[in-house]
Amino acid sequence: MDRIRSFQLWLAGVLLAGLILSGSTVSAQEEVASAVRRYKAYEASTGYYEEYEVLPRRQRPLIGVPNIRAGIFPYSPTVAKVRSRAHLADSHQGIRFYKGRQCADCHPAAATDIHTTRANLTCRQCHGDEPIASINYYWSPMNPIRRHAYVCAKCHEGASASYAAYVVHPPNPAMASTFKEFPVLAYSFWIMVAIAVGTFVLFLPHTILWGIREIFIKKKTKENKTIEPDSQNAD
């Protein structure tokens, strides 16, 4: 019995080690064997980029576009039109003067995320060439069912569907509306801010008052010798 039991334990150990050591296959890896090759194959079909889109970061006129501001009402009629087009093959279809506009004219906040400002990506590198499909359009590369493989995996090899759930254009965590849009982010942000502010509300005045108080203490003398300033028991 002991031998059978020890064999069972040994088998269980081997199976457990096998489970731990053999990583599960990431779905995107099956489709995208090489990120570079996949990227080139995909990009080769999209034509070329506009010159303004491939200039270095500081020269792109995307961030801080004047005269585009959200007012009391969240969307202008034009923006509302776009927002209600989440399933179209051409999400910008019928928008006036579309050809003369740049992405950030209507999407200023979308041009300030980390991918744009730090990784130096242009909009079209993810959203593709014209016509830009709505993200929920079935055949769109941006559709969540294939976004990880067609978009994220271009740079992040092995990206899974879970990985693609990262919000590339996150809302400002400090805004009240974020509690509805992305509650976990809003609560985490405000809890951390409360901890930071609480620490400084306590320790900053404490430190300043302590510093000031020590300036005004008297130096004690002992046997005609001046000793170090007594910060605690003086006065």
Partner: peptide, 9 residues
Amino acid sequence: GWGLNVALW
């Protein structure tokens, strides 16, 4: 993946 947005902040 959206946990990374939270982790970053």
